[in-house]
Amino acid sequence: MSLENLLGNWSQYRKGHEEGGFHDYKHLWGMAIDLDICIGCNACATACYAENNLAVVGKERFEKGQAMHWLRLERYWDQNELDHPAQGASFLPMMCQQCDAATCEPVCPVAATYHTPDGLNAQVYNRCIGSRYCSNNCPYRNRYFNFYSYYEDSWPEPLNMQLNPDLTVRDKGVMEKCTFCVQRIRVAKDNAKMENRPVADGEAMTACAQACPTNAIVFGDYMDKDSQVAKLWKKHQVKLRLTKQNKENPELRGYRIFEELNVDPSVMYLERVREEV
């Protein structure tokens, strides 16, 4: 396999991608988020702060767009509203979509962000040199850069005793983002392996999905056909590796954000429902 060959056949790789499947994935972690029962309460985002050692940056840095919320809860108003938003607000939990064809990965000059055999976009903190190319290339704006060293500001003693030892506290100059709680996945996989059994559905659970009071966020292994998440994707006839879904029943609610960009996100959203009164 020469570099010449690789570059010469690049377009073929891209085409082949539409049809086939990465059947050599043992796990492919995915999500389904039902926007009809997401109430926008922020429990998921706070659970993420608690689980993932996210720094609190304060008002001034928040203003500059330096907040480190790996999972942010966006709120939109309907565009056709007149004097009042008569149908309420639209809430959108937005975290790293763990794209299978992630735009962040190929631009990293040091391969600090790469694709794991579990279908996750990994970020290796000790390898990151802080070029921020990945962040510029993310269409979802889901990558967060440590412009400062937050250890002392964000966790004055004894707040630092809450820090989760299962993942690093990122230092200045490092890019970070949602990992689908890889440390929790790791524990689930380790436990399963120690007992020589497959990982059960629900055993690996992200902090956000765990916290969601309405169970709007469903997390699991897409490769496990009996998992709740795989069933939901199937039910809503949403398939991976397509830039445009050709559903048998186009009325089904599943969709992926920015699918048309060919980034192949692993998060499926279910459309919000409203009743005209």
């Binding site: 939109y76 108003w77 609610r253 919000r272």
Partner: peptide, 25 residues
Amino acid sequence: LGASDTQAGRRFVVTVPVEQYQRTE
């Protein structure tokens, strides 16, 4: 959080009428 109050025509949160939902789910 967020500079935009609306989705500016993009498909972030898509809303469907309840009749459609009743037909499928």
